[in-house]
């Protein structure tokens, strides 16, 4: 026999807690938060990581391929 929760306390207890990112934010949040601290650092390195890949692709594909 299944037990159906009736009290608001039980329902609240069953709501999933948002899992915060290492930067301390909820990834599902649609709120436009200020990008500072660890999130800003992630933003900068996210761009740098893209830059690294495409720097290699640009150089290897265009000129350096020794054919």
């Amino acid at each position: 026999m299944s037990v159906v929760p009736h009290s608001s306390e039980t329902v609240t207890a069953q709501l999933p807690t948002p899992r915060l990112s290492p930067e301390g934010h909820d990834p599902q949040s649609t709120e436009r938060i200020p990008v500072s601290g660890p999130l800003r650092r992630l933003l900068v390195w996210y761009g740098v990581a893209s830059l690294g890949v495409y720097l290699a692709l640009g150089a290897v594909n265009s000129v350096l391929l020794p054919l």
Binding site: S21, P22, P27, S29, T30, R32, I33, L39
Partner: peptide
Amino acid sequence: PDRVPRGVRGLF
């Protein structure tokens, strides 16, 4: 999608 809030993903 793992770590960035939806509201600022455009910036990322």
